[in-house]
Design a protein around this nucleic acid. Sequence first.
DNA 1: CACAAGACTGCAACCGATTGCAGACTCACC
DNA 2: GGTGAGTCTGCAATCGGTTGCAGTCTTGTG
Lengths: 334, 334
Amino acid sequence: MAATIRDVARLAGVSPSTVSRALSMPGVVNATTRARVQAAADRLGYEPNRAARGLITGRTGNIGLVVPDLANPFFPSVVKGVQARARASDVAVFLADTDEDARAEAGLVRALAKQVDGMILCSPRASQEDLAAIAQETTVVLVNRLVEGIAAVTFDNEGGMRQAVAHLVALGHRKIAWVGGPQTSWSSAHRILGLTAAARDSGAELIEVGHFAPTYDGGMAAADQAVATGATAVVTYNDLVAIGLLARLHARGISVPDDLSVVGVDDIAMSRMSRPALTTVRLPKQRAGEIAVELLLAVLDAPDPDTIVGSRGSLPGELIVRDSTGVAHRQARP
Amino acid sequence: MAATIRDVARLAGVSPSTVSRALSMPGVVNATTRARVQAAADRLGYEPNRAARGLITGRTGNIGLVVPDLANPFFPSVVKGVQARARASDVAVFLADTDEDARAEAGLVRALAKQVDGMILCSPRASQEDLAAIAQETTVVLVNRLVEGIAAVTFDNEGGMRQAVAHLVALGHRKIAWVGGPQTSWSSAHRILGLTAAARDSGAELIEVGHFAPTYDGGMAAADQAVATGATAVVTYNDLVAIGLLARLHARGISVPDDLSVVGVDDIAMSRMSRPALTTVRLPKQRAGEIAVELLLAVLDAPDPDTIVGSRGSLPGELIVRDSTGVAHRQARP
DNA sequence: CACAAGACTGCAACCGATTGCAGACTCACC
DNA sequence: GGTGAGTCTGCAATCGGTTGCAGTCTTGTG
């Protein structure tokens, strides 16, 4: 059985209160006493029980993290960022995977809320109303989603899309297809805004191919429709979709980038490994996780949280040019 | 602020004890009273604070999960399995990523131990002694590692390697190279045992190429050495390595599978997306996570945990044949 | 040498739950 | 109507910590 504060107190010959103070408010306790307590604590391998502390102080030192699907390589990156930053502040992380189930989300948040100081919801699938309700009960930071009145860290989707379009237009592309993500995806909606604006500004034509699952198979499914548009370049919702699309194009004997250029979004690890290596808009996923933690801790510490809610971070994307984009030298296919 | 048991009690006009009983020991409480309590709890959105419960009952309903690196696609799969199974039993999961730091491992376990009922350590990098010490203090289940006296769920490395060798030998390969993982990797050590035995039994020659990082770059680094052995087939520590190896072979103009066959291990999502699609030994990663939770819960519930420790699960691998393996029709390269 | 100020430390209450124990109440039966 | 059995519910202690308050012990000063 793990050592309690009483065990340490007994061994050091002091009261539990003194142990508590010696460990968490050094300076208040006599140096000699503190050394004795420290020695006892070390010998027993004592670590205070955060849960118990949380009952008193209202701060457990735990945070919750909810993601839709860890199998999507985007999320492990964010989780890693959260982990790293949390560890640096001696904060432990509860992780929940909702399996893309919007209803499960609220329930999980509820269950976790009691044992954490606050929660980070990454790309939440829940409705705006549900999120607002959740934020009412516990401190929340959103990642990759924007809801009125809730602190959030997002990616600059518009800027990223502008970079992609500028790159393609510079290569001579004038007809660009967009393979969208899930209908309900917040980021998909914002990416198309950026694309539309960028296309308009640069005189290119944008053709929407529709909504697809944000997966390899979704990309396979989208490929033929993208080709049928006659576009010379395709921008996809994310890299997984782009890679699935590449596979289908390869199977059909359509050459990338000679016949068709392809651009993804995210820059997951897999993207540099695809053939051809994927041109993509890199999102600072890990950084987003780190910032989310910082934002959450800041909100928790703030006397007036509302001042901070306003300061949300929008992280810039960065175009990574690899081999899946090239000069538009063929006419559009029939 | 979230509702406490006292709030519910006040609203229902009963004592906190009655609320506690009404919610967790139905049958003991009068039906009328219980209904009143239930209504009050629902209205306040009451969820008991597990941490507080844990102080009394010794069971928090939380478990800890430690992985070396979420960026390695192997681990998110395991985590997903753990998540899914834990959620089914209404158990919450603490996740920690050690960043491949063996020393951090023990510290993280210590910090988490107090707020969880038990921990699952996935592919722990810590020494056998440290693990034994950890298991002394808290209930532990290992995944992908075997240590005397600790419950564990492992993969049948030997069996998987036998399947791979049988496949290659059937294709006519007689000279097989092995690209090993990290020196300290338990599974790498066991895979080579299986390979050696299988090679011996089937009259094939096994050539060890050395130890490499379990990453794409590790595979790139290993490729040239693997080719230099003159082997007609290569088995790699895992799929990431195999995919890196494929990339380097492609760059050098070495055709897979015509010039060289490649077999990976794990069957991560990426493997079917590589070009050529990777033949690999599929490990039931998610299942391993699920079983680890079951094992942990069983050990926790067992009156005498030692009886269960013996019953460790070894999960079979399954050879998935794709396009990276073919008939050995060329002579070994110089 | 007495006394006051200041530095430490311990006592006890508290956080949000659970649970053994005993008191209160209902009801049936003699 | 009194008594006993049985059912239900509340009291109070407990878990592992934290913290306001008060008591003790030093130490310095007049």
